[in-house]
Design a protein around this nucleic acid. Structure first.
Lengths: 99, 99, 99, 99
DNA sequence: GGAACATCACCGTGTC
DNA sequence: GACACGGTGATGTTCC
């Protein structure tokens, strides 16, 4: 199949058909771009909301960095977390940072 | 102000008040965490939607990498315009034309 | 003192003096910019070197994420680290993530 | 491949070989950490140098914010040029003019 | 599974 | 000295 949005000359087909195809490709492209941009705006808005919540929590005395750590850990699988911590301990031990 | 979530003994106030404060801190913490997690879920869902749109566009023959480039550039253009404006402000300030 | 690089007309002084001042300002600006850019290049190069070392370590079987954690911890003051961890534990406890 | 730093028992090989391997792992780990820390020190020193240059420029009357803006823009110009070239490649690819 | 890319969090700096 | 911003580094994701 031809790549959408390209302007390679069709071997067969009338000029009108080609024009219609190209136009359609352009409209389609525009539609996709707009859908994406719309979604990204909403996504950004949510990101801003999250920032605001952290800010609000900070305003009531919570430590943002620690909050983020909590959220991160809750997202993480328990086993993963333990494995990672064990590995770090191993390295620390090798470096004499423990004991 | 004291850091929320710590349990240092208040100089004044009954034990009950303290308990209530700690409990309230806990509830507040839960509330913040849950709000954040809720928002992050929605954000993730939007990310997935965006993915889907790209996938759909790809399915109709568009080149995803090029699409991403277009979206990126349109975003950069906006940013740059804002940056330019901010820069003009800065220069005007440096030249003593503001303030 | 006048702001360097600005072109406000000096109240006293010949046009030649002014021209010389402006030129000097320009040269000086150029010099500063170049010094900064030179230093930033070197800084970037070191950043790249660090990346390379991590990559090499990874190539010999080390876990990069854990290595980074180690480096971070060695940089951090011991007390700081403990405080942060204690705070996180407090939050985790409040959320029933411990016990 | 086994993760470096773990101490899983080798299926073959004497205990001595294993010990040697572990020790080597430790030495290797130390070496990597130290290389990284050394590089980070140098990097930090350069960061300090840059700060000093800005401070010096400020001392001779330049507006630091404006200076930073200039440096930033010059960097962006470079990046953009590279981005443009990459973009052209992408488009050519999308149009089937490459490959 | 590795490389490139986009996003995100952290930190240093400047400001008020 | 707290807040805001910009720069930088790290993480997670996508593509090959």
């Amino acid at each position: 199949m031809a790549t959408a949005g390209t302007s390679e000359t069709a071997v067969n087909g009338s000029r009108d058909e080609e024009k219609a195809t190209v136009s359609f490709g352009r409209d389609q492209l525009k539609a996709f771009i707009e859908r994406i941009e719309r979604l990204e705006e909403e996504k950004k808005a949510l990101g801003d909301d999250i920032r605001d919540v952290y800010a609000e929590a900070k305003g009531t005395g919570f430590d943002v960095k620690a909050l983020r750590a909590i959220v991160r850990m809750r997202k993480q699988d328990l086993n993963e977390r333990k494995e990672q911590e064990a590995l770090i301990e191993t390295y620390m031990h090798a470096l004499g940072m423990l004991n």
